[in-house]
């Protein structure tokens, strides 16, 4: 049951908008912090960057109660089945943000121990680059996802490709203070 089961006509148009609005404004992430990116994810939830103002009020410990899985950190060989299990326990509609370069592609650890991109294990909707991405970049990624949910674009793609398929959008890293701090160095 879900929006897809409702027959689409001009009467249900407003209902669909309402559901998309609700999904976007109350997207609760599941705790899947693994490594350094988890620290920046916690910073995004803290007071200064405050993801709660975007509706991501609480990190739900139980995947059954979560809509969004932010894979924050490097996924090792031992962790990959756990990742898949947590993803499977989430209820549709669910989204995945791959936070950081280790989750997106293996990052600087191109070796035997790290899964080279969590898209090998779960379908990813937004790739957030950075090592670690600062809270601003993560918020940019989250808001990109929110926009895709609000317009319904992502659900159309899902229906075309099958439930759970990832949108695979890559965003740019937007951190750093663009300040005129001049670094002085001693000359040789």
């Amino acid at each position: 049951m879900g929006l897809e089961a409702v027959p689409h006509n001009f009467l249900t148009g407003r209902l669909e908008d309402l559901v998309k609005w609700a999904r976007r404004n109350s997207m609760w992430p599941a705790t899947f912090g693994l490594a350094c990116c988890a620290i920046e994810m916690m910073a995004t939830g803290a007071a200064h960057y405050d993801q709660a103002r975007f509706g991501m009020e609480v990190f739900r410990a139980s995947p059954r109660q979560a809509d969004l899985m932010i894979v924050a950190g490097r996924v090792s060989q031992k962790m990959a089945p756990v990742l898949r299990q947590v993803y499977d326990q989430m209820v549709e509609p669910k989204w995945v943000i791959s936070m950081g370069v280790c989750a997106s592609s293996g990052g600087m650890f191109n070796n035997y121990a790290i899964v080279q991109g969590v898209d090998q294990v779960v379908p990813v909707d937004v790739y957030v680059p950075g090592c670690p991405p600062g809270p601003e970049t993560l918020l940019h990624g989250i808001l990109t996802l929110h926009e895709m949910v609000r317009t319904g674009e992502i659900m159309k793609r899902r229906r075309a490709q099958g439930a759970g398929a990832g949108a695979g959008v890559q965003i740019d890293q937007v951190d750093g203070i663009p300040s005129p701090v001049r670094l002085i160095g001693t000359q040789a």
Binding site: A35, R74, S76, K78, M79, F109, N111, Y112, A113
Partner: peptide
Amino acid sequence: IGYLHTGMEKT
């Protein structure tokens, strides 16, 4: 443990 083994010493 071992769920975050990254092979950093090998790297």
